[in-house]
Design a protein around this nucleic acid. Structure first.
Lengths: 108, 108
DNA sequence: GGTCCATATACCGATGCTCGGTATATAGTG
DNA sequence: CACTATATACCGAGCATCGGTATATGGACC
């Protein structure tokens, strides 16, 4: 299973290409403020995901004198994210069933 | 966020106390065969979770000449697991929305 | 009778992701 | 002038997991 920062970074670049700092803010937003990435985590994860083929560099822009390196999700990346969503849902569902059994041990 | 082995171990001991090897099989079962814990992962995680107060030792049994050390989830452990389920569901939901936006960029 | 598998606990080194901090640079605000 | 937001990037430390190994008993198979 992916770690949470990796998962959220992948989700952040999913609808459209995004640059490092934009991903940082998007992850914070997507997680409801719960997850604040460190710069070190972000750029290391980005490099790793490029080498895995989950994302690709998608053109650099210059905005206000600063370079923006944009990243775009690949088809392979979308597949990884989709499978991961299934794992999360399956794990959540299983744990909920287990918790429900505490109150009602009769449940299958 | 918890790592998957830690999460599944906690879920495994949730409805009733269970011993190490029983947890190993339960985790494999709960994950649909996807997750097979290494013994090293299991016993290290068990020690960690005891020191965190998420589980407690709950009596040793002797079955067929072998000792079984049983572990039981605490109220604190149930709270950790419950919060974690919420995180998993939130993350899955967010990622699904992002994936849906690829096909229909008009979605909010 | 010997081999293999399931049960059962436990340790060890290596790997890898994340954390926390720091460095560098520009533009805008108080 | 200091601070914050934007923007990329590196570094050492921490720690959970992986993969392997050790030890021991009991049952099944041949």
């Amino acid at each position: 299973m992916l770690r949470e920062p990796t998962f959220l970074i992948l989700a952040a670049v999913t609808p459209r290409p995004l640059h490092g700092y934009g991903i940082l803010r998007s992850v914070e937003d997507l997680s409801g403020g719960r997850v604040r990435l460190r710069a070190g985590t972000l750029y290391a994860a980005l490099d790793r995901m490029v080498s895995e083929g989950w994302i690709v560099r998608d053109g650099d822009e210059v905005v206000d004198g600063r370079v923006r390196r944009n990243y775009r999700i690949t088809i392979a990346g979308q597949e990884v994210l989709g499978r991961e969503v299934e794992h999360l849902e399956a794990n959540a569902s299983v744990a909920k069933r287990q918790l429900a059994r505490i109150l009602d041990p009769g449940l299958a």
